[in-house]
């Protein structure tokens, strides 16, 4: 029998695979047209390497992060890899995650991405989806809502974050070479980050 954390990560992998061409197309417009292909390759390797019966959420996330570092190939490898590895530290040895712990994991993942990418909010990156998502999640939890409702709020905020990335100029990564021509296009990283949150939300709701 496969464990819940395996199923959740396999769900993210399936979502990325399903959206591979879409993510690559977004990246073709403002980058080097490899985001979907790279992420799908990385997550395919994750599902092969991750033990299906592991109950240790931290260990599973660490393995996911290490595999992404190694198999994605582009900058999203170290960025997502670091995010998963930082979240893994909060979940080490746990087989259940509370709503508060999930908030801490999201915060740790975002801090890892910021450190690794030397990026801040408003530079047309995955942070423009993840940081508003975190704020919305914490606000919902603060009002006494459960993890699923918190994730609903997070996904909505992340989607608004994607819309916001269409209005701004890229100043980080390959898209920054385009200058003003990057305006009007949504960021592929913000999109894959939102797909990830959506999958986690659907998994928690199922």
């Amino acid at each position: 029998m496969s464990s819940r954390i395996y199923n959740c990560i396999a769900g993210i992998s399936a979502k990325i695979e399903e959206n591979k061409d879409f993510l690559t197309e977004l990246d073709r417009e403002i980058g080097d047209a490899d985001h979907g292909v790279n992420m799908a390759r990385g997550f395919h390797a994750v599902t092969e390497k991750l033990p299906q019966d592991s109950d240790d959420i931290g260990a599973a996330l660490k393995k996911t992060g290490m595999t992404l570092l190694s198999k994605v190939g582009g900058a999203s490898g170290p960025l997502y890899g670091t995010a998963y590895m930082e979240a893994a530290k909060i979940a080490a040895g746990k087989n259940e995650i509370t709503a508060e712990e999930f908030g801490e994991m999201l915060a740790a993942a975002i801090a890892g991405i910021q450190k690794r990418g030397k990026a801040v909010r408003g530079e047309k990156t995955m942070l423009d989806a993840l940081m508003p998502a975190y704020d919305a999640y914490m606000a919902a939890i603060g009002e006494g809502k459960d993890m699923a409702a918190g994730l609903d709020a997070a996904v909505e905020a992340a989607k608004e974050g994607i819309e916001f990335t269409k209005t701004i100029r890229a100043t980080k990564g390959r898209a920054s070479y385009l200058g003003d021509r990057s305006i009007g296009h949504q960021d592929p990283g913000a999109t894959s980050a939102t797909l990830t949150l959506e999958t986690i939300r659907d998994f928690i709701r199922s």
Binding site: N38, M66, L69, S70, K71, V72, G73, G74, G77, P78, G81
Partner: peptide, 13 residues
């Protein structure tokens, strides 16, 4: 490149 020879970078390697 990556372990399988494709274009990319691999922090573990």
């Amino acid at each position: 490149g990556l372990e399988d020879g494709t274009i990319g970078t691999d922090a573990v390697r």
